[in-house]
Each structure stands twice: as structure tokens, then as C-alpha cells.
Design a protein around this nucleic acid. Structure first.
Lengths: 340, 340
DNA sequence: TTGAAAGCGGTACCAA
DNA sequence: TTGGTACCGCTTTCAA
């Protein structure tokens, strides 16, 4: 059995389709007699009629929904972004449609294409594979379609970013101050396009402190908690071993924490661990994690704000927004031990 | 500037709109001369044309997308469900649209309404507030609209559930065997409709062991990691204190773990902690968590399978599926200490 | 092998 | 205050 249409309601209520539209939408400026409204509403109720959003948005040109693409549900950092976007758009009467790509390039392309086809009022994208989407994005930019990207400015669309470079410099300063000289970097990202400025900042900090760089201390790996674990194991197996580990995010840091424990290393006495994102769990790990707060919630809020603004003024100038990251020092970092 | 339509392509390519449709869809049974295809494709490329999914699905009746509603992105258990659904539907050429409700009854209602209006090919729902959605769901059931619910059989639609009752009995047996008699239950759920069978099983196990129930040992709380933390604090402040804590999920268990640490209690020497879901992080906590694997991935897969099947046969009999939960014993549970 | 035209389920303008 | 109807962008017979 098919779902009821506007026409079904109209017929049963003995009114025209237009009238049905007026009453269900409470169209402003169109007065409807109480009696008619009653009758229509009753039929709507009885039939369980709900307007077809596809048809509505096809005809009216807007859907009051914005699409959000995130790379990976497993990384708690992205939840808070979602949360931020959601809080913001819901408040403005917009719906949010979420898609995730599991950090698979092909899936990212498909998902993006899917979102494009859906003609949402705006798109908020956390892309991982930049080059692959360049063609599509430039088309959109040219058409002034509302798009905001998170974490990169590779395209001519609105964007919000985190000051990861500065943040990295801050953690590094913190670690260097504690006397660490062998600092491993667990660099687990979804694609080669990501996090490059953090690598750069890491190198600069080292250079600034007059410490020669050991390429073996940068461990490039994947994005799972296991990747973090194995990466830490590898790094900690070196002689001399690093006395501090910088981890690309809290999720991988959990893996590193376990690796340290299994290696019989106490944190922070024997090994310091610091990471990025400062997600909810950071404070709950044992020991509580020193982490750079990138404030996903705020990131999401700002992205949504930009998107909403762009919907209103499609032709305004390009907007760029910075969210400042901030170092939160907890108990997982301490003075460098003297290696024997 | 507006996005190009089929008509734009047709005009520029000097063909009819139908022809454009044929070539972009590679409609089976409609042979197109190589020359025409070339020309059309070129224009498509040039204009950056992407078909309007709304119009497509409006006209053709299907959207090849299924909608998924989950309550809370913060709980890792739900990621694996999403993952499972996604893996399954993508393989079958379907898109997935995700929505989350943040455990807010009003938001759940809105979100559900939104999904209904979108006329997806099927809906997979993890509802938290059952009664509120009853009306809508019975309407759908009557119309044989493909819906599968996760975690409850409150409606006449397909469903997949976890055998939480049995699972609870298993953990409880494990704890009782270790000599625990004061077992606290951190019961943090999103709504009163949820998890009732686990409470029941908890009580039965206690009764079966001849242990009188202490209502003060069941701490009803919310769903955040902080709720888990505070709940554990409360429970551990009792005299005599519980020697074991059963926690509703891994996420809250993280909070409990921290509470134990802050109270100077070693796990499992002083206090045993067990939880539900066995998400990825369980094995990475310190100490690794004893947890009941509810296998969200499998849950998601099965739900998707049912949905896909229901799409094919709208009139088949109601389907119900059980996923067996399974106790995974790690290091967070041990013999009950002798309290002094 | 290609084109014309009738809808899919709504909205919004104009007329009554 | 309500009805008629063109049209949103596409698919799908049916003819040519």
C-alpha cells in the first residue's frame, strides 16, 4: 500500500489540493476558515499523511536541510563537530543529514556525489582526499553553491580551520621545556593531504631547540586505535627510546597508552604522552591526557554559522574562520627521565 | 547561478532530454550511438551536471537510500552499528543517510518525522522513546513501509535485538562466581523504556544466588561519561561499598574506571568492573575491560539485511532476528576482596 | 536510435 | 476564502 498523497487528502476532505497545502503549511497570508482547516486536518490525521519532502523541495527550491560529511565516526573529535553543527542548525529550523566515509577515497567521492545530487541548502565538508574532489568543488564554487570546508582552504569556498600549527608549537614547547629531546610522533592520518602543517611545526620546534631531526621518530600510520598501539610499540622499541610521544589524536593516544603499559613503562614517569583534540575522553584516561583542545563543538558551530550565512547571501565575499587550539596540560606529561 | 539541469545539457548537446537521461543512466535496453553519447557526456562534463536526486526519486519511485536513526553519537556502540549498516547497504548499491537525536525526545520525534517525509526506501530506527512514536510507526506498519527497529519489538515492524537478558545473567554469574555479593549497577540509559530487561536479569541473578536485593545498589543516571563517573563515586562511597560494578556500557565504564582510580581503588584487586557492548576501546582501557560483546557491527548488518529484504518483498511475514551477546572476560574483574 | 509528452507530489500565482 | 493550474527536474512509455 502506498503512502497517501496530497491529492488523497484533498479528495477525502472535499477540497482542492491547494487548500490542503495551505492548511498543512499554515501558509502565511492565506486565511482558511476554521471549519475547512478542521476537516482537512482530520483527514490528514486519519490517513497519516505527511508531505513528500522531495516534491516540496523540488518545487519550492529549498529543503531546509544541510548536509554534513565527516570522515570517520570512530574518532571522537568528529562527534563534537557533528554536535556543534547540529546544535546550531536545529536552532535555526534546519535539518541535518550526516554521512561518513570511513576514510575510503572511493567512498568519499561517492558520498560527496550523493550529497550534491540531493541539492541540500548547504554542505559542510570534512574532506580527507582533497585532490580527488577538486573538480567538483570548483564547479560548486563557481555556481556559488553554499559549501564550507573544515580543516583546509584548498578550495574557493568558505572554510573554518583550527590553528594546529600554533598548537603543535605549544605542545612541543611544553615537552622541550620538560627536557625531552627524543620525541616520537605518531602520525596516523587518513590521507597524505592531512596534518602536514603539524609535521612542519614539529620539525620547526625541534630545529628551534637545536635538536637534530631523527626521521625514525615520525611513525606514519593509520587511524585506528590499533594503529596507535602498534605505532607506539614500534617507537618504544627503539634504542635509545623516545621519552615522549606526540600522538595525532586522543583515539590513537589510547592505543599508545596501552602500549606503554604493556611495555612496563609508567606514564609520565618513564614516558610522556601528549595528543591532539582533547575530546571528552582525554580527561578520563589513565593518566588523564595532556591534549591540545581543538574544540570540535565550536568548529562545528562556526561551520554551521558560515553555512547559514552563505545561504542568506550567496554572493558575499569568501569567509574564513580560525578556531584557536589550546593546550590542556594534564598528568600524562612530565619531566624527561634520564635514560640508563 | 543555478545548477544546470537536464534540459540545459540537452539543449547544449542538441539532443532531447530523454536522450540525456539515457546516457547518464546508461539505461539498459536503450542503445545510444557512440557519437551521441560522446557529445552528451562532454556537455555533462563541461557544465558539471549532476542529476537532481529529488526529481529522480520522485519520478522513479525509489531513491536507493536508506535512512538510519541513532540516539547518540557519543556511545561507541552505535558507531559499530552504523558501520555494520553502512558496509551492508553500500555493497548493495544503496546510500545511507544518518541522523542522531542526542537522546532528546523532541529531537527524536522531529528527526523521525524528517526521515518519513524524505520517502527513503527503508528506515532503520534505534528509537529511545517508544510510546511517542507509536502512532507514526503503526501507520507505517499498516502501509507496509520498510522499517526495521533495533533493540525493541514494540511495533509490528521487522526488528533485530540483542539477547541482553541472557548476557546479563552471564556477567552476573561470572561476578557471583568470583565471590561478589554487593554488586552495584550503573544504569545510565536515555529513557525509561530502555534496558529494562537488564535490570530484570540483574535482579533474578541476585535472587537466584540467594542474595537479598539492595535497591541502593542500582544507580540510575544519564548517558554521559561524567554520569558514569559520578554514579561510580556515589556507589563507591557506600558502606559497605560494593566490590563489583556492573556498568550499562563501555562509555560509562570509562567514567567508573576513573572514579575507582581517584578513590584509590585498584581494579580488579579492590573493585571489579564489568560492562556492556565491548566496543573497540574496551580492550584498550587500563585495565582491559571485561565486557559483554553485543556486536554492534553484526547488529547493523542484520538490520540492513532485513531492510533490504523487506524492500524486495514488502508483503512477506514480519521478521525478527536475535544477535547473541557474548561475555568477554578481561582483566577488570577478579575475586571479591575481603572488606575490612 | 532518438524524441514527445505524460506524470511523480508538491507550491504558488491568479482567478473566482 | 478557495480552486485551477503551470511548473520544479527527472523517468518512462510510445511513436517516429
Amino acid at each position: 500500500m502506498k503512502r497517501p498523497t496530497q491529492a488523497d487528502v484533498a479528495k477525502l476532505a472535499g477540497v482542492s489540493r491547494a487548500t490542503v497545502s495551505y492548511v498543512v503549511n499554515e501558509t502565511p497570508g492565506v486565511p482558511i476558515s476554521a471549519e475547512t482547516r478542521q476537516r482537512v486536518l482530520a483527514v490528514v490525521q486519519q490517513l497519516g499523511y505527511a508531505p513528500d519532502a522531495r516534491a516540496q523541495s523540488l518545487r519550492s527550491g529549498g529543503s531546509r536541510t544541510i548536509g554534513l560529511l565527516i570522515p570517520d565516526l570512530h574518532n571522537p573529535h568528529y562527534w563534537s563537530i557533528v554536535q556543534g553543527v547540529e546544535d546550531c542548525v536545529r536552532g535555526q529550523g534546519y535539518d541535518l543529514l550526516l554521512t561518513s566515509t570511513s576514510l575510503d577515497p572511493e567512498r568519499e567521492a561517492q558520498t560527496l556525489a550523493g550529497l550534491l545530487g540531493r541539492r541540500m541548502d548547504a554542505l559542510i565538508l570534512t574532506l580527507s582526499f582533497l585532490e580527488q574532489s577538486r573538480a567538483a568543488l570548483t564547479q560548486l564554487a563557481a555556481k556559488r553553491y553554499p559549501v564550507v570546508t573544515l580543516g583546509n582552504t584548498a578550495f574557493d569556498v568558505d572554510a573554518v580551520l583550527t590553528t594546529y600549527g600554533i598548537a603543535t608549537a605549544q605542545v612541543m614547547a611544553h615537552l622541550l621545556e620538560l627536557g625531552h629531546t627524543r620525541i616520537g610522533f605518531i602520525f596516523g592520518v587518513g590521507s597524505k593531504d592531512l596534518g602536514t602543517n603539524r609535521i612542519a611545526a614539529y620539525r620547526e620546534s625541534l630545529a628551534g631547540a637545536g635538536i637534530g631531526e631523527d626521521p625514525g621518530l615520525i611513525d606514519r600510520t593509520g587511524t585506528t586505535i590499533e594503529d596507535g598501539y602498534h605505532s607506539a610499540k614500534r617507537l618504544l622499541a627503539q634504542t635509545p627510546r623516545p621519552t615522549a610521544l606526540l600522538v595525532i589524536n586522543d583515539w590513537l593516544a589510547m592505543g599508545a597508552l596501552r602500549a606503554a603499559a604493556e611495555s612496563g613503562l609508567r606514564v609520565p614517569t618513564d614516558i610522556s604522552i601528549a595528543s591532539f583534540d582533547d575530546t571528552e575522553m582525554a580527561a578520563y584516561l589513565q593518566p588523564p591526557l595532556t591534549s591540545v583542545r581543538s574544540n570540535g563543538h565550536e568548529l562545528g558551530r562556526q561551520a554551521a554559522t558560515l553555512a547559514l550565512q552563505r545561504i542568506r547571501q550567496p554572493d558575499g565575499p569568501l569567509m574564513r574562520m580560525q578556531i584557536e587550539a589550546q593546550l590542556v596540560i594534564r598528568s600524562s606529561t612530565g619531566p624527561a627521565p634520564v635514560l640508563t
